[in-house]
C-alpha cells in the first residue's frame, strides 16, 4: 500500500485516495473542433510510461482535494506531489506533459 503525501494533509495511506490516471491532460476548450482521431486521442491514448509518470490523485477519504504527483512506475517511488494547475518542481517533468490534450479517466461501470 502506497504512502501518499497529500499537499494539504500530509502523508496518508493509499486507501484514502483514488488515482485519477495521467495528469496534465486538459480538456479541450472546444471539443467539437477536434477530429474523431484527435478526440479519441484525448479520451483514450495514454503515455503509460515505464519511469516517471505525472498522475492525478484525489484524497477522497480525506480533504477531498485533487492534486498531482510524479511517481516512478518502476519503483513506485513518489518524487513529489503538487497542487492541480501547477507544475512539478522537480526537473524531470515528464515529456508527455507537452502532448496535446487528453482526458479524464474513462469510467466503464454503469
Amino acid at each position: 500500500m502506497l504512502l501518499i503525501d497529500c499537499p494539504y494533509c500530509g502523508k496518508r495511506p493509499e486507501t484514502e485516495f483514488r488515482c485519477g490516471g495521467q495528469a496534465h491532460i486538459a480538456r479541450p476548450t472546444d471539443p467539437s473542433a477536434l477530429s474523431d482521431a484527435d478526440w479519441s486521442e484525448h479520451l483514450f491514448v495514454r503515455a503509460n510510461p515505464r519511469g516517471v509518470h505525472a498522475e492525478r490523485w484525489n484524497h477522497i477519504h480525506g480533504c477531498g482535494r485533487w492534486f498531482n504527483a510524479l511517481r516512478d512506475t518502476v519503483s513506485d517511488r513518489f518524487i513529489e506531489t503538487y497542487p492541480v494547475g501547477s507544475e512539478p518542481t522537480t526537473g524531470s517533468h515528464p515529456s508527455q506533459g507537452t502532448e496535446p490534450t487528453r482526458s479524464t479517466q474513462t469510467e466503464t461501470r454503469a
Binding site: R18, G20, A26, R27, R56, N58, I60, G64, R65, W66, V84, G85, T104, Q105, E107
Partner: peptide
C-alpha cells in the same frame, strides 16, 4: 458517490 466524484473532478481540475 460516483456522481459527486465526477463533479468534484471537473470542478477542481478542469474548471477551477
Amino acid at each position: 458517490a460516483r456522481v459527486l466524484g465526477h463533479m468534484e473532478d471537473y470542478l477542481q481540475t478542469e474548471w477551477p
